[in-house]
Design a protein around this nucleic acid. Structure first.
Lengths: 200, 200
DNA sequence: GATCTGATTTTTACACTGGAAAGATTGCGC
DNA sequence: GCGCAATCTTTCCAGTGTAAAAATCAGATC
């Protein structure tokens, strides 16, 4: 299976390599050739599986959204008996945790122009993640969150908070947050999120 | 002054061209050569003023922070008699307005790895903007916001909210927000920001 | 087992990129 | 006028993404 001409599972290997490259270089310095080299193939090999670099990173972003949704499901299941507001809080903390655990992937998913969100797979994966968040907001408020204007605003409020916090932590622009140790930081994240009244 | 060999104010012209290029291509597809071409000079001309592309975009980001701080000052001055919480709200809306009015510049300032934040000019311009926000939070709460842990958390909370909202609007990931007309959107932005209790 | 077929990967080629180095042009003090 | 430093262009090079052609392989069919 190894060192044959045909790789066997190059598609997956390229996604792994792309994520590693992204972690080292960021979306603005990502190069397809370095990615292919890391996977041990010629620089033209990715084209057959992904078309171009946009296709490759769109597939990686879709993968990210699937992993994100999976993580969210696990966390929600782990606190299935808690109150809806508490569960929304858990989901919010999960959002920030995912961003901190996968900074490069998170930026690709939420702050890059490269992935093509008209791509069917990426689009549906992203919408599934969004629906999960909206549903948790709905549970916390006891109403369909997307049916009313106020419900939509509640979703937007919660999402803005966790999204902004994630970005600011990753960008390391708030010095006092970056100086906290892991335990303190987790407490701070939970405290900041709970400034949104829904989650209590 | 025009069509001479020496440009006269190439530095400024390049910053203008860079901002326009950024608006069209984004940080991930920005090229120095296209930027130079737009300014009507050879592709090597920017090097003398900015060193490399990182230097050029660092200077542009610094410019962005100065403009941001100026906008914030104007808005705060326009409501000098209002209550401190109200003024903090105005500043938050200004933050989002700036992002919407200058999407490319905003992303460069807050979501790009290219600008060098060890650069002295950029660093001081960014910190001046940050101080403005922190000061407004301090006024709203009547305490030095950076002196206590709770004060720092209040700054982080406010900043996360406006920052996340800005990013989500620019990324166009919340469909129901993108479908609002301008007047409705402004009302929604103010409503979302006021979910942070400080601003009321 | 030989051969054909399509999928996968490499090789080659090309236009474009950023930056280094060297040369050309200019403004300015003298 | 002359020199000189600053500014800009030209030229060059290694590296980039993608298209096209060639090479390799797996598996079906005979």
């Amino acid at each position: 299976m190894s060192n044959t001409y045909h790789h066997g599972d190059l598609r997956r290997a390229l996604l792994v390599a792309a994520e590693a490259e992204l972690a080292e270089k960021g979306t603005e310095r990502f190069t397809l050739r370095a990615c292919a080299k890391r996977a041990g193939v010629s620089h033209a090999a990715p084209a057959h599986h992904f078309g171009d670099v946009e296709g490759l990173l769109s597939a990686l972003a879709a993968d990210g959204f699937r992993r994100f949704a999976e993580m969210a499901s696990e966390r929600l299941q782990a606190c299935a008996d808690a109150s809806p507001p508490k569960r929304l809080n858990v989901l919010g903390v999960g959002y920030v945790d995912f961003a901190r655990a996968n900074p490069a992937l998170f930026k690709l998913m939420f702050a890059s122009d490269i992935p093509d969100f008209d791509d069917k797979e990426l689009r549906s994966a992203a919408e599934a993640s969004f629906s999960q968040l909206a549903a948790a907001v709905g549970d916390a408020t006891g109403t369909d969150p997307l049916a009313s204007h106020d419900g939509q605003l509640r979703v937007a409020t919660m999402w803005s908070m966790v999204h902004g916090l994630s970005h600011l932590i990753l960008a390391r622009r708030m010095r006092f947050l970056n100086e906290r140790d892991e335990t303190e930081l987790q407490a701070d994240i939970a405290a900041i999120i709970s400034a949104v009244a829904l989650v209590r």
